[in-house]
């Protein structure tokens, strides 16, 4: 602030000085660092290309192998369904956690404690063997008659076990993210909505959650990317998602390294797509927040707009404001 005021003083002084053409400071350290990085990058790239053990030809053969592609689809299915369960469950748990009823909020806390406190790999295997614990599942009145009788062994397939384990575990983490989002919304928003005659549910759905989304989205993007990779753990219960499919293939042809590279490339590709999606969702929920809506990279390319231009205008505005505050608006 003090700096700005000084700058204003100088601007207000009689003769406005001309364009600055100073000799830039030299940064020898930066050049040395850049040189080291460049040498390292070139040598790594060289080894990746020339080392025959990478077997890039084999990577190319298997990258679009139909088994691998099927594994990719299963991985995506697991990720989407588990995250859907996780987000829905997370919202319910977060609202429960904020309930004034101690039993309800306590139940939510217990759930979070349990599912966060045990490794997800253990949970996956546990769900896979759930039939050993509950051979049959009955739906009906507790301690009363049962209406639907299901055989756990046929109901809980590897896929169902994986979804249950990943989804229920995720709900515990998501609930904390959602709760943080809800708490971040100013209480005045709730006051205003209530004063207008909106019920608690309407207020939550229409006013609080949409604003909480701004805080919820970035860590949720993180969770989704993390989930995409965590699905590889279900290889443990022999579910043919991307990683287990690759394992099955290299168990036969011994091309371990190239297949691991294929798997890694696919994971990298999918997480990259997710990151882009996250950017656009964040932009949507950020509406009304910043004074100027930031352009998407594509818009920026099309308009050929330099960000520098915007900065310049902002600085001018700040100087104008400082001038007004000092009551000297006449000097322009």
């Amino acid at each position: 602030m003090a700096r700005q005021a000084d700058a204003t003083d100088e601007i207000a002084a009689a003769e406005p000085p001309g364009e600055i053409q100073a000799v830039p400071v030299r940064h020898p350290g930066r050049w040395i660092a850049a040189a080291i990085v460049a040498v390292l990058a070139v040598s790594i790239a060289n080894s990746v290309i020339t080392n025959p053990n990478f077997q890039w030809g084999v990577v190319g053969d298997f990258l679009f192998d139909h088994r691998i592609l099927h594994g990719v689809v299963v991985t995506l299915e697991l990720t989407v369904i588990a995250m859907a369960i996780g987000i829905a469950g997370g919202i319910i748990l977060a609202v429960m956690r904020l309930s004034p009823n101690p039993l309800v909020s306590g139940a939510s806390q217990f759930y979070i404690w349990f599912f966060r406190g045990t490794p997800v790999l253990v949970q996956i295997v546990f769900w896979f063997y759930i039939a050993a614990l509950y051979p049959s599942i009955d739906l009906g009145i507790p301690f009363g008659p049962s209406f639907i009788h299901l055989d756990a062994n046929s109901l809980i397939t590897a896929f169902v076990a994986a979804i249950l384990a990943l989804g229920l575990n995720e709900a515990a983490y998501m609930s904390e993210i959602v709760r943080a989002g809800i708490i971040s919304v100013d209480e005045g928003q709730t006051d205003a909505a209530h004063a207008l005659g909106m019920t608690r549910l309407q207020t939550m759905r229409r006013i609080v959650l949409p604003q909480a989304m701004r805080v919820i989205i970035p860590p949720t993007g993180n969770e989704t990317i993390s989930m995409l990779k965590t699905t590889s753990l279900v290889a443990f219960i022999a579910l043919a998602e991307l990683f287990y499919t690759a394992q099955l293939i290299y168990a036969v042809n011994y091309k371990t390294i190239p297949l691991l590279i294929v798997v890694s490339l696919w994971y990298l590709f999918m997480t990259s797509i997710l990151s882009v999606g996250q950017y656009y969702i964040e932009r949507y929920y950020g509406r009304g927040r910043s004074r100027t809506v930031s352009l998407t990279p594509w818009q920026r390319i099309r308009q050929g707009l330099l960000p520098r231009h915007v900065e310049r205008e902002e600085i001018d505005e700040t100087i104008d404001q400082a001038r007004m505050r000092r009551g000297g608006g006449e000097h322009r």
């Binding site: 100013d186 005045g188 928003q189 006051d191 205003a192 909505a193 209530h194 004063a195 207008l196 005659g197 006013i207 949409p210 604003q211 929920y285 509406r287 009304g288 927040r289």
Partner: peptide
């Protein structure tokens, strides 16, 4: 329903920013 018949304006505006 009772509140819907009473208008209130706050010191901090409390407009819905989204």
């Amino acid at each position: 329903r009772g509140r819907a018949q009473i208008g209130m304006v706050f010191q901090s505006f409390n407009l819905f920013p989204h």
